[in-house]
């Protein structure tokens, strides 16, 4: 926690999507972790917000989206559709993005509620979600080929099916994940990481935070030289969290 050297590697702009409506169960922690780790790696973080009706900022390097209540999803629905093309282009272009829970669902093709209503998504991810009356809730561990063991906490009643155009983020070793059958969690496409895990996700999974930062730095500056964040507490928090019951 010592003072980090003054940032000199350049500015990375992190945009939070709809932080007012889509920011539940600690998803703010993801923004805080990116902000701090950018500093610890020697960059200057710039945290931006995009809310319903705002102008969409230029030169965004990382996009973050969180979960929300059903009511929050309804509030942002139309605005998100209006920004769909912009976000799809950015995703295909390789912009690193992390979307959790509610925005994971809306980054997919659609969300069909248990009463049959269909909320269209923006189709960045080849996934579809069906609302159920079963709530998948509790601690989750997964094995990810890219990031190793991922730890978090899920709380959702939408069940997500992956299509051919995405890979799962990992295989579940504790908890439910995307749905109660398939044994996998989250989705990966280009540099988009999608997951149901709150917890918050990034604090205890800095490998994902550093992937987003590295990808952003390489795209913007051509290379990434890491700093040396002190992850002592992170490692201990992971050890203790992994032992907790579902």
């Amino acid at each position: 926690m010592s003072e980090q050297p003054a940032a000199n590697k350049g500015t990375i702009r992190v945009l939070q999507l709809y932080p007012r409506e889509m920011n539940i169960y600690g998803d703010w922690g993801n923004a805080l972790v990116l902000q701090q780790r950018l500093k610890w790696h020697g960059y200057t973080p710039e945290l931006l917000e995009y809310n319903v009706g705002d102008d969409f900022p230029d030169d965004v390097d990382i996009i973050l989206g969180g979960g929300g209540q059903d009511s929050g999803q309804l509030v942002i629905q139309d605005d998100l559709q209006a920004r769909g093309e912009t976000l799809r282009t950015m995703a295909e272009d390789g912009t690193p993005m992390l979307v959790i829970c509610g925005l994971y669902q809306l980054f997919g093709k659609f969300f069909k509620t248990s009463s049959g209503a269909v909320i269209p998504g923006i189709g960045i991810l080849d996934v579809e979600t069906h609302g159920t009356n079963e709530r998948l809730i509790g601690n989750v561990c997964l094995d990810s080929p890219e990031f190793g063991e991922i730890l978090g906490y899920e709380n959702h009643s939408g069940q997500t099916k992956l299509g051919a155009g995405v890979e799962p983020l990992g295989t579940v070793t504790k908890g439910a994940g995307n749905n109660s059958k398939d044994g996998h969690e989250g989705a990966r496409h280009r540099n988009v990481v999608a997951s149901y895990l709150h917890g918050s996700l990034l604090p205890k999974n800095p490998a994902i935070a550093d992937f987003l930062i590295r990808t952003a730095a390489e795209r913007k500056f051509g290379s990434f030289t890491p700093g040396s964040p002190d992850d002592t507490f992170t490692d201990l928090a992971r050890t203790h969290a992994a032992r907790r019951p579902r």
Binding site: M1, V33, P203, K204, L236, A237, H240, A241
Partner: peptide
């Protein structure tokens, strides 16, 4: 507490000694 290290990690990210 059982989740002392989660709390410690939280404080670290808020620069609390």
């Amino acid at each position: 507490g059982v989740r002392a290290y989660d709390m410690a990690l939280r404080l670290q990210y808020d620069d609390v000694p």
